[in-house]
Each structure stands twice: as structure tokens, then as C-alpha cells.
């Protein structure tokens, strides 16, 4: 488990001067994940907020080697660099030092358009870490719904209207889909939990093979909240069990954060503009449905983590 003192001795992977919104959670994730690596890193990113704000030519915020290719292929691109590294190392053309390969993608580039590329790269067993900075919508193009968008959230392609209360469907449970790939390491973390995230990233870097971490990233613009609350909202997602923090190491589940007191989902929803319409009379059933689904998923997870008995 890296301490903040350890982390402070590492080179910051990002400079200031990037163009992310004030209070953006994505650079927080990047800094925490990459500073958890004791070894040098090489990074790819999907097209999206992160890539756009960090690489407006000729200004790049990346202090490490970085390649952006396209939207749906961060994983495949990263797998290509990793393959080149293996080949060149085997042929003695580069130094044999360990390098950690990291692919970043937003939820659009990971859950949706880049899903096949991710699944393929993970199945092939490349020694790489894929990190999804999951802000639960296509923020870069102006807050459109993705399969990671939660039920009830208003987005520009599933807006709250007179007959439709925002997104109708629940979010896709991508972390579980990645667990089903039988990877050596899969985890879920959130902005607001630096120790949890850096510990998981370090663990991933110490694990050989394909790794996946899904990090919930509050987005002040798309979620519509005060930018100073980015970490707080991330913590509320965990405290309401909307976004539980856990890891699956070689198939073994472990809850890495158990809220002292499980808060109702409304505690999370009420701080965000994307859910504002749900507080209007007539939408109680939606909140109820959200609570019910959160409870169901949480209960399933507790069972998998050995924290609750299996329902008979």
C-alpha cells in the first residue's frame, strides 16, 4: 500500500496547464494511478475528455510517453505497444527494464464503442492495465447517455422530458463483465478514495497479465454540481452503495470499503443536477426503483465477497 510520502517522491505524470474543467476528476485518477507505479509507464488513451484536454497541440500535459490513436481502440493500441516491447526485449533491441503499460478510456470508449477492443486485449492476455475513468456519459461531446449512465440521469440523448424521466435503463455492470473474463485482477474504485485507488493500481502493476480497474469519476459539468465537491460525491457513491469499492483477485472477491452506514441513494442523487427532475412529485417510483436495484446489486456483491450469506 503506497503512502502519500511514497507517492510524493514519484514524478507527477501530468503537468498543470491542461484544459480539463476546474474540478475535473479525470486528471485526479490519472495522477493517482500512474504515481502508484514504481516503474516507468507508457500510456494510451481513447479519444475523449482526457485526451482532448491534455494534448491540445503543441501543448501536452503528459510527462510520460503517451499515444492517442482513436476512440474505440485504446486497449488494442496499448496491446500493440506491449507486443512491440516484448518483441524488442526478446531480440535485445531495448533495455530489459520493466515498463507498465496503461490504457485509459472514458465510459464511452470503454463500455460502448471500445468494448470489443477491450475484451479482445484482455482475452489475449497482454501485460497491461486498462483504467476506465467512468463519468457515466459521453462528456466530451456534450453529455450524451452511455451504457454506464445510471437510470434516471438526464443526458442530452436521454433527457428528462414530459414523458421520459431521463435514462430508462440501469447501467451496464462492466466490472462484472470484466470479472467474467477471468482476469488476474479486476477492481472498482472511485475518485475521493486516493488510498483505495493507489493501492489497487499498485496491486495491478505488481500483477502479471491483463488488469482492469473501473474508476467512478464525478464530472462537475455533466453531473452538475459544485466543482469543489468532486471527491465528496465520489465518496457518497460508495457510501450509498451505488458504486461499491471492491476487487477481484484471481476470482476472489474482496470488499475494499464498507460504508459505516449505508446511506439512501437520495443522498447521492440530490447533490447533482442530472437527477434534479427526480425530486419532482410523481417521480418517487423511479427513485424507489433505483434504490431497489442498488440494494440488489449490493446484496449480490456482499454474497460474492463473503460478507453476507447466500440467499437460500
Amino acid at each position: 500500500m503506497p503512502t502519500l510520502k511514497d507517492l510524493a517522491t514519484r514524478k507527477d505524470p501530468l503537468t498543470g496547464g491542461h484544459r480539463a474543467c476546474a474540478g475535473c476528476g479525470a486528471p485526479i485518477i490519472v495522477r493517482q494511478v500512474l504515481m502508484a507505479s514504481k516503474e516507468p509507464v507508457v500510456v494510451t488513451s481513447a479519444t475523449g475528455c482526457l485526451e482532448v484536454v491534455t494534448t491540445i497541440f503543441p501543448y501536452t500535459a503528459w510527462n510520460v510517453n503517451f499515444l492517442h490513436n482513436a476512440f474505440e481502440n485504446s486497449a488494442a493500441t496499448c496491446s500493440g505497444i506491449e507486443a512491440a516491447y516484448k518483441s524488442l526485449k526478446r531480440k535485445g533491441k531495448i533495455k530489459a527494464e520493466k515498463i507498465n503499460f496503461v490504457a485509459f478510456g472514458g465510459d464511452g470508449g470503454t463500455y460502448d464503442i471500445g468494448f470489443q477492443s477491450l475484451s479482445g486485449a484482455m482475452e489475449r492476455g497482454h501485460d497491461m492495465l486498462y483504467v476506465c475513468y467512468n463519468n457515466e456519459a459521453y462528456m466530451n461531446t456534450g453529455i450524451q447517455r452511455s451504457s454506464a449512465t445510471p437510470k434516471g440521469a438526464s443526458t442530452t440523448t436521454a433527457p428528462a422530458g414530459k414523458v421520459q424521466p431521463g435514462k430508462v435503463q440501469f447501467s451496464k455492470n462492466l466490472t462484472e463483465i470484466m470479472v467474467a473474463h477471468d482476469l488476474p485482477y479486476v477492481a472498482q474504485s472511485a475518485v475521493g478514495f486516493w488510498r483505495d485507488l493507489t493501492t489497487k493500481a499498485e496491486k495491478a502493476f505488481n500483477t502479471q497479465g491483463p488488469k482492469f480497474i473501473n474508476v467512478l469519476q464525478p464530472c462537475r459539468l455533466g453531473w452538475a454540481y459544485d466543482p469543489s465537491k468532486t471527491c465528496e460525491i465520489g465518496r457518497l457513491a460508495a457510501d450509498t452503495c451505488i458504486w461499491p469499492l471492491y476487487e477481484v483477485e484471481n476470482g476472489k472477491y474482496k470488499l475494499t470499503y464498507k460504508p459505516k452506514e449505508k446511506k439512501p441513494v437520495t443522498e447521492f442523487l440530490k447533490l447533482q443536477g442530472r437527477f434534479r427532475h427526480l425530486t419532482k412529485p410523481g417521480n418517487e417510483a423511479i427513485i424507489e426503483a433505483i434504490q431497489k436495484e442498488v440494494d440488489r446489486r449490493w446484496q449480490n456483491l456482499l454474497v460474492r465477497c463473503g460478507e453476507a450469506p447466500k440467499a437460500s
Binding site: G16, A20, A22, P27, I28, Q32, W194, T230
Partner: peptide, 29 residues
């Protein structure tokens, strides 16, 4: 550790020395 803009300046002993106002966007995190 939570600054999105790498705008917290650490001194040679890795203690907080101030804010880098060249980059700080004032988010308040």
C-alpha cells in the same frame, strides 16, 4: 494527491509549500 491540476507545490522535503497559481483553476477541491 487530489489536485486535478498538479498545482500544489511541494518543497524539497515533500511538504506543502503553496499553490501554483499559474495552473490552479480555483476548483476548491
Amino acid at each position: 494527491v487530489n489536485c486535478p491540476d498538479s498545482a500544489i507545490i511541494l518543497d524539497e522535503n515533500n511538504k506543502v509549500a503553496g499553490i501554483d497559481y499559474r495552473y490552479c483553476k480555483g476548483c476548491g477541491i
